[in-house]
Write a protein that binds this DNA or RNA. Structure first.
Length: 440
RNA sequence: GGAGGGGUGACAGAGCGGCCGAAUGUACCGGUCUUGAAAACCGGCGUGGGGAAACUCACCGUGGGUUCAAAUCCCACCCCCUCCGCCA
């Protein structure tokens, strides 16, 4: 969440910055009013509380001196002050809850560096990359045999079975088979191995408590986008960012250990509630996908480099896989709730002729760490919130789509890039012959 | 799931109704001593909220309750450990 003290200190600045991403000034004015009301109630209640404590001390003294009448008088007085204190405290709690509810709903302040804009159309494309670009070649033209959608390729080769997935869990739950399944495993292994030089590999739980989801900013605002297991107060994680951000919740981290960097392979679950029927064929948009995430807790000074490192690693993977992609600098209006600055990576898929988001590399400033209460002591001084940074490297479902489309050969087989060879037991060719044909 | 034990400051560990935000030890910071270091000795050392300040409030797993007063008593829940049961 944003810093309430900062809002009080410089309301115009915060209001105009949040205005860039569409938060009405009215909301902030109301928040300040609620906050002022809360504080004045708090002062009254605390004065009463102090009085009760003072009287209690006097009761102890009176009893010690054996003055029973005085003891009873003081007890009576304390009791009545205590009663009004209790009533006031309840009002204080209610006021505090109101403040918190509004505060939790306010998105992060965008970085000054984030471009202006209201939505996806205003995002700024920073660069593109494609195989051969470094040698001066133009953007690939792609042959007709590459202009086949991955869902057709998947069916043809028996490596993707959307029908079977739908039968088991409903539409938009993909089921990969044979070489298609192994390809996913290979991608995850490749990525995790690549990041292991600087990022500790974590395998977190797939579900998280409401409190955990709140720390990253996924709750309360985006509850419709998540799968819930109400009986156990659990939510299926939409990204490994959720558990990783909360791993050190409530802790004061050793400054010497920063940045603390972690990578995790998890399944990610998205209800995609608002997106019914839109771009939903094949793997364009699915409810469950595997993703390798990169994450860092760092000092404010380290944040920029930490974000750059994650972006560089995600790009390096795309290049290693030989996939054309572009980098977008998200405008203020398109930023995720918790983010101050985000770079999206979109891969080009020739078969469906689209740019698909496969990574979102974000800097959250102290928005998440304030919710999660993760701090460090700069120079041994008083505790200060850390910054969090994360990004995917990468989300595999769409990469899978890009790979089979980009590397489809004239004969209908798929010839995967050599970097994956070691993870595929040397079999970089996927052809009908390898398909375990139970059905087609 | 059943039985028992336990959750207190960075860590260890006392306190079990009345200046307890909390003894003591370790760690850490400053100082004395020393050529330097160690040891010893002296001093300091939690977090958060409110307040211009004086000052004040909260926090001893979490949430309720009893009481003039709760780390201390009562209730519920969570987590950890040991044993039993079950199990990939």
């Amino acid at each position: 969440m944003i810093d309430l003290a900062q809002l009080r200190r410089e309301p115009e600045l915060v209001t105009s910055a949040l205005g860039r991403r569409g938060v009405p000034a009215q909301v902030l004015h109301e928040l300040l009013a609620l906050d002022a009301a809360h504080r004045s109630l708090l002062q009254e209640a605390e004065a009463l509380r102090a009085r009760v404590k003072e009287l209690s001390r006097q009761v102890a003294d009176a009893r010690k001196s054996g003055d029973l009448t005085l003891t009873e008088t003081l007890q009576g007085e304390s009791r009545s002050v205590g009663e009004s204190e209790r009533a006031l405290s309840q009002a204080v709690d209610e006021a505090a809850a109101q403040v918190r509810a509004v505060l939790l709903d306010i998105p992060n302040i965008p970085s000054d560096a984030a471009p202006d804009g209201a939505g996806p159309e205003d995002n700024v494309e920073l660069r593109q990359w494609w195989p051969g670009m470094d040698q001066g070649q133009p953007f690939p033209s792609f042959a007709d045999h590459q202009r086949v959608a991955h869902w057709d390729i998947g069916t043809e080769l028996g490596i993707l079975d959307m029908e079977a997935g739908a039968k088991l869990a409903g539409s938009m739950f993909p089921l990969f088979r044979g070489a298609g399944s192994r390809l996913l495993r290979a991608l995850s292994s490749l990525a995790l191995d690549q990041h292991s030089d600087a990022y500790e590999e974590i395998r977190p739980p797939t579900f998280a408590l409401t409190e955990t989801m709140t720390s990253t900013g996924h709750l309360p605002k985006n509850s419709d986008d998540m799968y819930a297991i109400e009986r156990d107060d659990l939510w299926a994680i939409p990204t490994a960012e959720v558990p990783l951000t909360s791993m050190h919740r409530g802790e004061i981290l050793n400054e010497a250990l920063l940045p603390i960097r972690m990578t995790a392979l998890t399944a990610c679950f998205r209800r995609e509630a608002g997106a019914a029927g839109r771009d939903t064929r094949g793997l364009l948009r699915v409810h469950e996908f595997d993703k390798v995430e990169l994450f860092a807790y760092c000092t404010p000074e380290q944040a920029e480099a930490a974000q750059a490192d994650i972006l560089a690693r995600a790009e390096a993977l795309l290049r290693a896989l030989g996939l054309a992609y572009r980098v977008l600098d998200l405008c203020a209006g398109d930023l995720g709730t918790s983010s101050a600055r985000t770079f999206d990576l979109e891969v080009y898929t020739p078969g469906v002729d689209r740019w698909l988001e496969v990574s979102s590399v974000s800097w959250f400033r102290d928005y998440q760490s304030r919710r999660a209460n993760v701090r460090y002591r700069p120079g041994g001084g008083s505790p200060t919130l850390v910054h969090t940074v994360n990004g995917s490297a990468l989300a595999w479902a769409r990469i899978w789509a890009a790979l089979v489309e980009t590397y489809r050969q004239a004969d209908g087989s798929v010839e995967l890039p050599a970097v994956l060879g070691g993870y595929l037991g040397g079999r970089t060719t996927i052809s009908r012959a390898y398909a375990p044909t139970s059905k087609r």
